[in-house]
């Protein structure tokens, strides 16, 4: 039997936890995407050592568990003079973790931009900055939004790891509730519901965004020849 008095008693702290979860997730995604985009751009610079450095960063982050990265940042940080508050460390950790994945997503998107669209812009005398803003990023959005939304959904679930370094997010509050009331079933059920809600909202927003940025394609079924670069060159 569900004990409704528990919900009344713990409701406020659970909501607060949910708020912290959303804050950490949103800030982590923002940092991850920004950093990932910068990493992707730096990777385009024809400078070997820089490319290796970025590749190493991406490989290390993707090759090690998030929990260990978080420990390193929060518990190992002070030994190199980096003393962070738990929530700050959590957000930063989530951002760094996400940046490696976002960098890869953006790199694939950048490579998928039809070369001809960039050449057309170059031949009109547009600057690289203008080409990036007006041609490359819009084309990238079309091909990468599903992957971006997917990564954001993964990050919602990675926020539970933050409870281990005592960030007072949803998982942390739930564990407190479970420890104090022994109401394991309600706790786990409630937790699953919250995360499902968050992922569901994310993917719905993602679908709407995708529909919006690909609007110009759905107006017609004819494929745009401009999405291919010319292969038959005399």
């Amino acid at each position: 039997m569900l004990d409704t008095s528990l919900i009344i008693q713990y409701g406020p702290s659970l909501l607060r936890g949910f708020g912290v979860t959303i804050l950490c997730w949103a800030a982590g995604c923002a940092i991850g995407m920004t950093l990932g985009f910068v990493l992707m751009l730096l990777r385009q610079v024809p400078l070997r050592p820089l490319r290796w450095l970025i590749r190493a960063y991406v490989e290390v982050i993707r090759g090690t568990p998030f929990l260990i990265q978080l420990f390193l940042l929060y518990n190992g940080g002070p030994s190199i003079g980096l003393r962070l508050e738990a929530t700050t460390a959590g957000i930063l950790g989530l951002g760094l973790y996400g940046s490696a994945y976002f960098a890869e997503i953006f790199r694939a998107g950048y490579q998928a931009v039809p070369k001809g669209q960039v050449e057309a812009a170059l031949s009109l005398g547009m600057s690289y900055g203008a080409i990036l803003r007006r041609v490359i990023v819009p084309a990238m959005l079309v091909s990468t939004i599903p992957a971006i939304v997917n990564m954001m959904a993964i990050l919602t679930k990675e926020t539970v790891v933050l409870s281990i370094i005592t960030v007072p997010e949803l998982m942390y509050e739930m564990q407190t509730m479970a420890a104090e009331t022994f109401a394991t079933f309600e706790t786990i059920l409630g937790m699953a519901l919250f995360y499902w809600l968050l992922v569901e909202v994310t993917s719905r927003l993602g679908r709407r965004l995708e529909a919006r940025v690909t609007r110009f394609l759905t107006h017609s079924s004819t494929p745009t020849p401009s999405t291919r670069t010319s292969t038959a060159r005399a």
Partner: peptide, 14 residues
């Protein structure tokens, strides 16, 4: 110097 391409290369989102 303007250039016209075989594959048109219009920007599809505009």
């Amino acid at each position: 110097v303007g250039m016209v391409f075989q594959q048109f290369n219009l920007w599809p989102h505009m």
